[in-house]
Design a protein around this nucleic acid. Structure first.
Lengths: 340, 340
DNA sequence: CCTCCCTATGAAACGGCTTTCATTTTTTTG
DNA sequence: CAAAAAAATGAAAGCCGTTTCATAGGGAGG
């Protein structure tokens, strides 16, 4: 027996319509009535039933997010919390909540989305990872449902997205290494099906080309977002006769593996080889030596995604790309390479 | 113009009631009608409006969770993702979603909860951290609303909770150190207002008492869940003339700070002092040396909390405490102490 | 062949809120 | 002071489902 708008109305001696108008600050309600109704609402501890409200308003004031499958979660895992904080902070501020769901099996991400969308549980959806030819993006695009992707789509131009300029970031990192004298630069990449991997690789390649430096396919290793990948990459890279003097690593956790591999092989960082990685998660300042990394503004990405999506829902903006600035954090894993 | 139950009814030449009954597998609907209606639903791409359904059923099939304030998030941060995965995995399996919200300012956690509860957006709530005399627990208890706390309450017995046996865990850890020969054991604790801190400290104290070993107040240092806390603790502890030969640390991140502090002061782990910590987050296997730690089953805690809460919602269980087993992970930060 | 009882389905109310349209009350204006 | 305009409020429909109660039709039993 929760207290409803009717109870308030009866108690205040007005009609439900009037109470409703008081709640929504309708202009044509007299100050006295407003005061009286508000008093009663307080006394009765009235809170509107959001389901009823949502049903009639045709919007739920809720954003949706699909939990990544464990496999892809690897990437998201370490900054998931920060992301979510950003999203929820901004959403709450504007009166939205965040609904999380996941497919029951690995396969039905699409089903989960359809259910959310058609079931009217959410007004918009945030996509955390963008894969090449991402079917989820296509689905939402077809349903014409508001959504924002963290990252970008390789198929659709006119969507909402929040991203780092990963190409630029990788270029910056590469140029940074070049600027301190490195000429042979390797790259430990992430899974090829993720767009972020692709972009970072592109930036790296372009920077090298622009500087007219050598690129060797064997200097580029692809792996997962696992430290093990970094560890494994080292044996192949370091056994090359003409090996890189610096390495760009796609993620700090992977870089940790790189560090571990190098230590085991008897190399010193940064004396023997310089390392710089991406994402600047907690780990990166805890390694030995502390890692140079690229801060990508995770909280801000979440925050911005939330904001953008809500604007899209309320004002119908449906095509905008926001780039969150990145920043190279200098620690102690890179050293200048002196001419020899 | 989403397709509603009426559209399906019209198209199938039956009444909305019949369609509704088909959806819920009502026994008294003829096979032919069922088949016909299902076919139409498919053709039209019908999905029930969950808001309407929730409104009439008086339940939303949604669990709620309040994002911890940044200050307390520190503790939760590093395993937040794992927690959430556990919660959502189990919830999704049983047809529930997870709704996340936060107070807009730091203060109104209680408001956020009230809104969720009275607004009928959720059927139950998961509380991630339990503080001493936690006002949030009291609030939910007063509202007689289903909730489960991760941890335990120091005020209420008859609630739903999922926890580690932290007292036992700390006792185990202490006994482990004792078993390898340590007699002077220190403790780097977490914030006193968290129940988990209190419990671990209790376990430690009890184990020492049971073994009739010395406890010195100056061997116990309280700090935040920050590596800085561990770092700072070292200067005071290591400057004692009669200092511990082993240290139990409340969290791996803090232990990392401890390690850093010790290295700077010129001590070697485990030769000079043994370290073991709690939580077993990613970091703990990456430190130098890799940390002995206590695995606390985070995913399983989330999973269990979800399950327990849903059972409570559906079957009215309202008092149950589930303990998730812990496990000491042996790595290389503890060494036996030989008699001298 | 008539009643009685199932079975399958439909009609209508309800859940709690918003909003249009109508109505009453008050104020303004000529 | 009457008429018109403005302000304040109420009645009722509608959002989209579920469920109770009623009813039509078919078969069993007498």
């Amino acid at each position: 027996m929760p207290v409803t708008i009717k109870d308030v109305a009866k108690e205040a001696g007005v009609s439900p319509s009037t109470v409703s108008r008081v709640i929504s600050n309708h202009p044509r309600i007299s100050p006295q009535t407003t005061a009286k109704v508000k008093k009663i609402m307080d006394e009765l501890g009235y809170h509107p039933n959001m389901l009823a409200k949502s049903l009639v308003m045709q919007k739920s004031k809720t954003l949706g997010i699909i939990l990544p499958r464990p496999a892809e979660e690897l990437f998201v895992n370490l900054f998931f919390s920060e992301f979510i904080r950003g999203i929820v902070a901004q959403a709450s501020r504007i009166g939205y909540d965040l609904l999380m769901t996941s497919g029951v099996t690995q396969m039905d991400e699409a089903d989960a989305i359809t259910k959310l969308v058609k079931g009217k549980k959410v007004d918009g959806i945030i996509i955390l990872t963008s894969r090449k030819k991402d079917p989820v993006i296509k689905l939402l695009q077809e349903m014409k449902f508001p959504f924002v992707v963290i990252g970008r789509s390789d198929e659709f131009e006119n969507i909402l997205s929040v991203d780092n300029d990963n190409i630029k970031a990788a270029t910056d990192v590469t140029n940074y290494l070049i600027s301190i004298g490195h000429k042979r630069i390797g790259f430990v990449s992430g899974p090829a099906h993720l767009i972020v991997s692709q972009d970072r690789l592109t930036g790296y390649t372009e920077a090298l080309k622009a500087a007219q430096l050598e690129t060797k396919p064997e200097w580029i290793v692809e792996g997962e977002f696992l430290q093990e990948s970094g560890y494994l990459a080292m044996s192949s890279i370091m056994s090359l006769e003409n090996r890189p003097s610096a390495l760009i690593v796609t993620d700090d956790l992977v870089a940790y593996g790189v560090l571990r591999g190098l230590t085991e092989l008897g190399y010193k960082v940064p004396e023997d080889i310089s390392i710089i990685s991406f994402n600047n998660i907690t780990i990166s300042e805890l390694t030995n030596p502390p890692l140079n990394s690229v801060e990508i503004g995770i909280y801000q990405m979440g925050y911005t995604a939330s904001q953008l999506l809500i604007r899209s829902i309320e004002d119908g903006v449906d095509s905008k790309r926001e780039l969150i600035p990145h920043r190279i954090i200098t620690r102690q894993s890179c050293a200048p390479l002196l001419e020899k």
